[in-house]
């Protein structure tokens, strides 16, 4: 019974994000730059509903709902929506929604279609034994991926708009996009916040492992640790180049796009296929 309830709730979340995205698509089509009731209300409704579903799932499973692909994708989608609410409030522009919300729709759709665990698994039980530090380690790392996804969406927007402006063919897309400076700011800040969160996640992971002697023996050959480090370094390089000025604008945006594609590939290839619980398996 719980399985059916959770699946239905997951489906409802997909539907709400879908409706929200349609609202943004309509707003984008009509060329509305500022967010309106028709975009804000569905977004907040979807976010609140998603939060409620995560809480229900967490209470039912007895641990934070961030474990496994199901949990990770659900949490990434939720944190992206959360970040986007702040972004929209701060920047007063709704065009980002059209590029960012598809991630929330796709990720929650995967969660719904795959169907998550209805009872706590051994892996989850082992993870939850590690306590709050581990939960924060997971949340930090996953939150950083949300930031990188937003940077990716922003990067894509920047590249498209920059291309139109340089080609001097100002079309419908240009008229609907936020200014380049605004997009650049979103990319830079998202990369910066993502780096902080990933760094925090890694530090918390290391602290957690320090308390478990067997963990230190296996972490060196753990692909997850290396990929996380690789990703952190790649984004740190982009941010450094952007701040220095050499990669301000298009190059930085392209960097954010390429890096996220790398994150995506590494997440599926390494995290899901080669390792589940690193450091203590």
């Amino acid at each position: 019974m719980w399985g059916e309830i959770l699946t239905s709730l997951d489906g409802a979340v997909v539907l709400l994000y879908g409706i929200t995205w349609l609202g943004y698509a309509r707003s984008f089509g009509l060329g509305r730059q500022a967010p309106t009731k028709s975009t804000i209300v569905p977004l907040l409704t979807a976010l609140i509903a998603h939060t409620a579903v995560l809480i229900v799932r967490g209470i039912h499973l007895g641990h934070t709902p961030t474990i496994g692909m199901h949990g990770a994708l659900g949490f990434v989608a939720w944190s992206m929506a959360l970040c986007y609410v702040f972004l929209q409030t701060h920047l007063r522009t709704s065009a980002f929604g059209i590029f960012i919300l598809p991630f929330a729709v796709v990720f929650t759709a995967i969660v719904w279609l795959v169907g998550g665990p209805t009872d706590s698994t051994d892996l989850a039980a082992k993870m939850s034994e590690r306590g709050a530090l581990f939960a924060l380690h997971m949340a930090g790392a996953l939150f950083s991926y949300s930031c990188f996804a937003i940077a990716f969406a922003g990067g894509l927007m920047y590249v498209l708009l920059d291309r139109e402006l340089h080609s001097k063919k100002i079309g419908a897309l240009t008229r609907r996009m936020p200014p380049l400076a605004k997009i650049d700011k979103v990319v830079t800040h998202s990369v910066g916040l993502g780096l902080i969160m990933l760094g925090l996640g890694m530090v918390l992971g290391v602290i957690g492992l320090a308390g478990q002697p067997e963990g230190w023996e296996s972490w060196e050959d753990n692909a997850k640790v290396f990929t996380a480090l690789l990703i952190w370094m790649a984004y740190a390089f982009i941010l450094f180049m952007m701040i220095r000025g050499d990669w301000r604008g298009r190059r930085g945006a392209l960097g954010a796009v390429v890096c996220f594609l790398m994150v995506f590939a590494l997440y599926f290839v390494v995290n899901l296929m080669f390792a589940n619980l690193h450091g203590a398996v």
């Binding site: 402006l165 100002i170 240009t174 380049l180």
Partner: peptide
């Protein structure tokens, strides 16, 4: 005006420059 693009996009050269500036800098 708000639901269609009938008033969108500059139609004078001087204003087109301003609109481009806004598209770049906000």
């Amino acid at each position: 005006r708000s639901e269609t693009g009938i008033d969108r996009g500059a139609v004078s050269i001087s204003y087109a420059a301003v609109e481009l500036a806004r598209q770049i800098f906000g």
